[in-house]
Design a protein around this nucleic acid. Structure first.
Length: 246
DNA sequence: GCGCATGTTAACCA
DNA sequence: CTGGTTAACATGCG
């Protein structure tokens, strides 16, 4: 689950804040009995982290690849990692990593969170330039630069910015790098809107696609970069630019 | 039914 | 210490 999906989760959960938790069903390794009688104070997100603040406890939930949550409407034959029963609603978290964290959230730097009001694009640009030999397909997935960006967003951003996934920072102009950063934020918010409207998949331009939507050539599918993550790209529209003017 | 994939961490080894 | 590899986690899809 990627950053924008976590933001949607916080919105759905915040609608249930301040309601007393009547029952806790816990399959994590943490002792969460004390949540009973408390209520969710606030749900926040940092990148792909979902942070649940309770008066005397703070949990961090990471959905990894396969995790999910439901509000009411539980999955059949599945034991949730954590279930919180309120008076009128039940909240279920499935196959996720749940961790109790310190209540002070000062460890989180929201300037790196692409979905945050505090997102600092200049800082991201500098961090890119600090790693001139790295491929941009890897840098986009670096949670210390673009917290919340995942592999789907990476694919779509690279196509929109017309950049080759295996391009290294050194070979890009400052303009191209700024474009990369701005397209990332722009697409993250687009992802968020489409996801809410349930039309995310149908708007993918390259992810899991066969043909380039612009030139109609066959897309390349390759596991790129040091991270070896799946990348769909058009080698005609996303050319390497080794001799660009700086 | 197999193999892979919207992801991260930790153990292990060179 | 650094960097690379592997496993673990656990589910849906083609």
């Amino acid at each position: 689950m990627e950053g924008p999906s976590i933001v949607i989760a916080t919105e759905e959960l915040n609608a249930l804040a301040k309601k007393k938790i009547l029952k806790v069903t816990n399959h994590t390794k943490w002792d969460l009995d004390s949540l009973k009688g408390q209520s969710l104070e606030e749900a926040l997100s940092w990148g792909k982290h979902l942070i649940l603040k309770f008066p005397r406890k703070t949990l961090r939930i990471h959905f990894l690849m396969f995790g999910s949550y439901r509000i009411d409407d539980p999955r059949e034959n599945r034991i949730p990692k954590l279930q919180l029963d309120l008076k009128d609603h039940k909240i279920y978290f499935y196959s996720c990593a749940i961790k109790e964290i310190e209540n002070n959230l000062a460890d989180y730097d929201w300037t790196t969170d692409v979905m945050s009001d505090e997102w600092d694009s200049k800082k991201a640009l500098h961090k890119l330039k600090d790693q001139p030999k790295k491929m941009i397909c890897d840098l986009l997935l670096d949670q210390e630069i673009f917290s919340g960006v995942g592999n789907i967003i990476k694919n779509e951003v690279l196509f929109r910015a017309k950049l080759h996934p295996e391009e290294i920072v050194d070979n890009l102009t400052s303009l191209q790098l700024r474009k990369l950063v701005s397209e990332t934020q722009k697409y993250c918010f687009q992802f968020y809107e489409w996801k809410k409207d349930n039309i995310l998949r149908r708007n993918w331009l390259v992810f899991k696609k066969k043909k380039c939507p612009v030139c109609e050539r066959e897309l390349k599918k390759k596991h790129t970069g040091k991270l070896v993550r799946r990348t769909f790209f058009c080698s005609h529209c996303q050319k390497k630019s080794s001799n660009k003017l700086k």
